[in-house]
């Protein structure tokens, strides 16, 4: 290869790596109508972005260089360019947009319209609406299977998880879970799905092939769940326990609980650490998933929620 071209290639690679959205956590701050952007390596706030009123849900796409944020009280979706950390578009969404998620290939963004019992679909690039579907009562957390075939939706007020076939957008199954499922996450291989059941203080483990379930007791009034980078442990935020329950995936046993800030809500993993948004304390707690020590507490905006996958660890 021409040495000059090679050098140019290296420069381009470095430039794209520095702007990689996977290196950042996007924390929605309900009380300050903003998003705090954290560097997941040095645990510093690198930007604060003004969005709409009472932001809650978030989905991050490293490959698109975009972040989608639902502003529930403003009834809108903010689209952030993660290279410039600026809002590039705002989509009006009548109702109560809460949950936000991306399709497996990131070509579509899904918004759960809580009070209208609907999922809205948008093209993630053109931002044009693609359609909507009704799935159950008060849809909350959503996550797409890595093969692109399924979208899982936690229906908070139906006490089930809907399995939606993304070919025709029909509901393929509704899996009963505990009372008030809110947050969802999925193994990278798509084989196990986890639902956090707020009123039952439990986590439901769903085998995505058989749709068989089992459950594990967690702490008080749990909201959200994340897997450790090595997929061996689950971390569940307990909003009224001010702690995080740690579960061993293989044995389905609770290992311990870790004290974090007040009313922890959203939780996501970088390729090294677990990040927890503490609604009451206006902070993010960073946990080492191996030692289970709190290694950092970062001041964010007011009433941090960060509901959804607020870090994208996939390469752009």
């Amino acid at each position: 290869m021409n040495p000059l071209l090679r050098l140019l290639g290296i420069i381009l690679l470095c430039a794209s790596a520095s702007a990689w959205a996977g290196g950042h956590a996007y924390i929605t701050n309900q009380g300050s109508d903003s998003v705090s952007v954290l560097d997941v390596t040095n645990h510093k706030v690198i930007a604060t972005i003004a969005v709409g009123k009472a932001p809650v849900g978030v989905a991050v796409s490293a490959r698109l260089g975009r972040v989608f944020v639902s502003n529930v009280e403003e009834q809108s979706l903010s689209v952030i360019d993660s290279n410039t950390q600026r809002v590039i578009s705002t989509i009006a969404i009548k109702g109560a947009p809460v949950g936000v998620a991306l399709s497996a290939d990131h070509s579509q963004v899904f918004v759960a319209n809580w009070f209208d019992d609907q999922i809205l679909r948008f093209d993630s690039t053109s931002l044009q609406p693609l359609g909507s579907l009704s799935v159950g009562k008060a849809p909350a957390g959503m996550i797409a299977s890595p093969d692109g075939q399924w979208l899982y939706v936690a229906n908070r007020d139906s006490n089930d998880v809907a399995v939606i076939n993304t070919k025709d957008w029909n509901i393929s199954a509704r899996v009963p879970v505990g009372a008030h499922p809110f947050g969802l996450t999925l193994r990278r291989d798509g084989k196990q799905l986890y639902s956090v059941n707020v009123y039952d203080n439990s986590l439901t483990i769903i085998d995505t092939a058989s749709l068989q379930t089992s459950s594990v007791k967690v702490g008080e009034h749990p909201y959200c769940v994340a897997l450790s980078p090595d997929q061996r442990r689950l971390f569940v935020t307990n909003t009224q326990g001010d702690d995080v329950t740690v579960i061993d995936v293989a044995s389905r046993q609770v290992l311990t609980s870790i004290d974090v800030g007040g009313y922890p809500e959203g939780i996501s993993a970088s390729d090294q650490h677990i990040f927890v948004a503490n609604w009451f304390d206006d902070t993010v707690t960073v946990i080492d998933p191996d030692t289970l020590n709190v290694i950092s507490t970062i001041s964010t905006g007011k009433q941090s929620r960060a509901f959804g996958q607020f870090i994208d660890t996939s390469l752009p």
């Binding site: 009472a54 809650v56 529930v72 009280e73 609604w279």
Partner: peptide, 11 residues
Amino acid sequence: AAHGPSPQKVE
């Protein structure tokens, strides 16, 4: 049983 989308706090 049913509540709004944004919790409020007082301390």
